[in-house]
Design a protein around this nucleic acid. Sequence first.
DNA 1: ACGGGCATGTAAGCGGTTACATGATTCG
DNA 2: CGAATCATGTAACCGCTTACATGCCCGT
Lengths: 192, 192
Amino acid sequence: MSLRHGLLGLLAEGPASGYDLSRRFQEVLGALWPAQHPKIYAELGRMVDGGLIDIDSHGPRGRKAYRITEAGRAEVRRWLTQVDVDHTVRLEALLRSYFFWLMEPDDLARHLAREAEFYTEQAAIYRAYAERKDAGEFGSTPQVQSMRITIEGGVRVYEALAEWARWAATYKLPAAADGGAPEDGTANSDDG
Amino acid sequence: MSLRHGLLGLLAEGPASGYDLSRRFQEVLGALWPAQHPKIYAELGRMVDGGLIDIDSHGPRGRKAYRITEAGRAEVRRWLTQVDVDHTVRLEALLRSYFFWLMEPDDLARHLAREAEFYTEQAAIYRAYAERKDAGEFGSTPQVQSMRITIEGGVRVYEALAEWARWAATYKLPAAADGGAPEDGTANSDDG
DNA sequence: ACGGGCATGTAAGCGGTTACATGATTCG
DNA sequence: CGAATCATGTAACCGCTTACATGCCCGT
């Protein structure tokens, strides 16, 4: 249940409304940790009930700003230091790659080209963000330092995937063109 | 709903039981696309109803092997060529990094060290797998070629994360102590 | 006055995890 | 004979997404 802790972490910087939090999640974390507004509003309600946050102020258009409590601060710190990282990743692109052998070579080539393009673009978005940060556009508070690290992670992961897609294009296609016939025959049983 | 297509893809290699599929998902895809057995059995049931697979044979201990049908083959090919890739990623490690500023410097250092270790280990597991493959241990069928690409993706993603964690350790801590540029060499003018 | 963005929510449904439950077979 | 592993499932619950629904306020 990390959305809760993500919200608490953002609120640790200062009061914000559900709408604000939704936007901030989108900005940097959007491609790394998606969070839709219904989930956010629901979670905020639950956290008020649990005493982790409370309502700071009411604004125009029914706006409600939330403020983190001491219990909330303690909870986000507990999460950061005590709770094991959930290392689950779920990359559909890599799942698909397991089944590339079912695709026609030129469908596959097109697919990999599009994939490479997508990841390259994502990496560029993050890199541009990093450059704006390094140019001092956001100041140099501890929060911004942390954000810089997150962004760097985005750059590196997307660059890795972009390079992977380009590598895959050169790996698979020659195998389909030039011989490389399956002369093995014995292979079939599972276990490796 | 990619679990369905993953199962179909594996069944395209030949008949298998739910238990087999569960194990095969674990092996290579375990860290890239988790799939628990209850979900697998449920999905197999639904796919039989939908005519994408049917029961191939009954074995000992109530074992049921499933065989892909023509409709199933068509469906997995449709998925591979027609359906847009779901590019959603969800990396808790990067979400957390956004809140590093809330951590004590030595908690953070310990955290990043453990993270680096974990990702390095994962990368090593995949790299070892890749080497066994490249040594010809699994033959060189098209399926194995595809698997090789998946593995390469695993290596690259985990290596990227490992390097990121190591970079982060050199980036953040000098800022807390007394300045000094990160090894990476990229500009960070506003860095303390 | 009106359109776009601010702002908050509800409800249905899906996909996934965890815990529970059971039994057969093989191997030592 | 007992333990490990094979093998299949159900049920409860959780987290998340999508679609639906509403209304206000600001700028032009």
